[in-house]
Simulated scan of single mutants.
Amino acid sequence: MSDAPPPNSSRLAILIPFGIVTLIWGSTWLVIRGQLGVVPPSWSVTYRFLVAGIVMLGYATLRGERIRLDGRGWGFAALLGLMQFCLNFN
């Protein structure tokens, strides 16, 4: 029997945030499914992304966070957003 400490992946500091993100991310499909038929799914997702972006920008501004990106940062953000929107939701 070994007295080795448990692996880092079993610590609550990792498992709790992972569980919260998983529950929130998984539940977004319920919202998308509820909006089907009112507007096309792509527009529904576009509206949700736009609202989320505005809320995050407002929150960062209230906290006084730096929200500027250099050219490389914008490229990464654009690529990530494109992949997330086109490959994940569409």
Rank of each mutant, 00 (worst) to 15 (best):
G26V: 01
Q35F: 14
G71N: 08
F85Q: 12
P17Q: 02
L12Q: 05
V38D: 06
T28D: 07
L62E: 09
G37P: 00
N8T: 13
L62H: 11
G53A: 08
N90F: 10
G26D: 01
L80S: 12
A78R: 13
P41M: 01
I14R: 10
G81L: 11
S27R: 12
V51F: 11
F76P: 03
L69H: 04
F49R: 05
G34C: 03
L15I: 12
A4G: 04
W25F: 07
S9F: 09
F89I: 14
T22C: 04
L82I: 13
G73R: 05
T61M: 14
Y59L: 15
S2M: 04
T22N: 03
L57M: 05
A4D: 12
F49I: 15
L87E: 09
I24G: 01
M1C: 14
S44P: 00
L80M: 14
S42G: 01
G26K: 00
L30I: 11
L57S: 06
N8L: 15
F49H: 07
Q35R: 09
T28S: 12
D70Q: 02
P5T: 03
G71Y: 06
G71H: 08
T28L: 14
Y47H: 11
W25N: 07
S9W: 11
A4I: 13
G73S: 09
V55M: 09
V55Y: 08
N90R: 05
A4F: 12
L82K: 04
I32E: 05
Y59P: 01
L12W: 12
A60F: 10
L69D: 01
Q84V: 15
A4E: 15
V31N: 04
P5W: 04
R11F: 02
G81R: 03
S44Y: 02
L50F: 11
R68P: 00
L82P: 00
W74R: 05
I20V: 11
G71P: 02
W74G: 03
V39I: 10
G19W: 09
D3C: 11
S42T: 10
I14C: 03
I67N: 05
E65V: 07
I32L: 09
D70T: 08
L36G: 07
W74E: 05
A60K: 05
A52P: 05
N8C: 01
L79V: 07
R63F: 03
N8K: 14
A13S: 15
L80D: 14
F49S: 06
M56R: 09
G75Q: 08
A78S: 15
M56W: 12
